[in-house]
Amino acid sequence: MKAGIVVFPGINRERDMAIALHASTGRAPAMLWHKNADLTGLDLVVIPGGFSYGDYLRCGAMAAQSPAMAAIRAHVARGGYLLGVCNGFQILTEAGLLPGALLRNAGLRFLSMDCHLRVERADTAFTNGYRAGEVFRAPMAHGDGNYFADDATLDRLEGENLVALRYATAEGVVSPEANFNGAARNIAGILSPSLRVMGLMPHPEDLVDPLMGGTDGKPLFDALAALEVA
């Protein structure tokens, strides 16, 4: 499986992502500066977290309009997989590759803490390392992670089974107490209808080694390691 990480100015979690991908796939992912991002031959493209373009205007707004997005759209159009984490998720919604938007956290605070995620479906390339209903821990670090979409869009996401992950308690209860940023319907991660694009706010890449305090995020990257674009 060949992975590449697209780096925009202000992105700062690309090395964490590279470590996680390297550990699971056995090969270092390509690090691709946005100005000359050649995505040819890649199975998976990842947009990592950070503060692209200083979060100017809106989180992800500038990166979503950058020329690199054309290459990323082409990668998706030819059947490639795309993962956006944190700022990467914000960029994907701003680019219209995933529906909705990420608002300022409901409590206004920047949240740097662990959360628990319940796996809503385990039959996708991103989540098949988990069981449906399984709960795993993931660090989060964001100021704008409050997922929003209008009711019709939320109903469609749920109707088409495109919610990948929800904020839950460690016991797997999807409740307001577990929903630290106030996300609509506790949504932490969503999928495109093709199931080849996923965006999520928390950082599974930061929990893939006992030295990091746990390996809860590793099944996601182990699953991705098995990917191959036909």
């Binding site: 205007l57 809106r58 707004a61 309009q65 919604t93 701003e94 529906p99 909705g100 938007a101 608002l103 929003f148 979409a149 209008d150």
Partner: peptide, 9 residues
């Protein structure tokens, strides 16, 4: 429509 506002929100 294209950049200054995100008309989703």
């Amino acid at each position: 429509r294209k950049l200054l506002a995100n008309t989703v929100i």
